[in-house]
Amino acid sequence: MNFKINRDKLFRAILYGSAFFLIVLIFGFFITFILESSESLTKFGFGFITGKQWDPVDGHFGALPFLSGTLITSFLGLIISFPISLMIAVFLSEYFYKGFFHNVIKTAVELLAGIPSIVFGFWGLFALVPLIREFQLSIGIEPYGVGIFTSAIVLSIMIIPYTASISREVISMVPTDVKEAAYSLGATKFEVIRKIILPYSGSGIFAGALLALGRALGETMAVTMIIGNSNSMPTSIFSPGNTMASVIANEFTEATDSTYVSALIEIGLLLFLVTALINLVGKYIIKKTVQF
């Protein structure tokens, strides 16, 4: 008897310990970032976020081009990816919920999630960049090939599995009797999907999109290879640019003086905060919209 109680206590202690450990870890993370970027933080203050110029040789460290780069590529990627992912999810859960076709597409989506990002980078570089260059030539703009738009497309493909698989899961959780009620009133399959299934699974789908966005915000390798690594403010979605993650990856090994290193770490801190902020806002929206 006593032994059983003790074991229970021990188990609880381990659970508490693990949870506590995680909090300490995140806190420690945060402290390290702040300490390591303190030089840049004190030197540039808020101007770091609003500064449009990043010129380490002249000592200009403004991160706005990268902040914009990250937000534009990620949101654009999400906008392109979302409808495709949602259609895949609906297709898998309502039209082909079993059988050969279902398995082929489901496996393809799963494979997509397992492809290393450097492979996406190569694919973007060798397959997509020439196409985009053609397109840019045809509409008469500077044919960079690489850039924000190219990155957004590659990101949109990379994040499909996140929205698609979570959406598929929540869509398949819509109770059969609720769907049947709609059919019994004379609704067509399309009407049931649009007016019953999607509203029911809306917040879950939103959570999937949020996860996908988080993935896009932090994606480093593929984007670094195809965004063009330009440090000036993007002027159009076809401009070459840099994201927060790609500029760190690209310049960290070259950063020689301490201000430069500290500024790059501050970009890391900024990325951390932006991701956290978007997640918090998303969670808040989900909470506000869950109605049942």
């Binding site: 109770p175 009797d177 609720v178 049947e180 009620a181 709609a182 019994s184 009133l185 019953i196 509203p199 029911y200 109605q291 049942f292």
Partner: peptide, 13 residues
């Protein structure tokens, strides 16, 4: 032809 089911199933949304 309307239908009422065994378990009440109002639309939860």
């Amino acid at each position: 032809i309307g239908m009422v089911f065994q378990k009440p199933n109002p639309f939860p949304t």
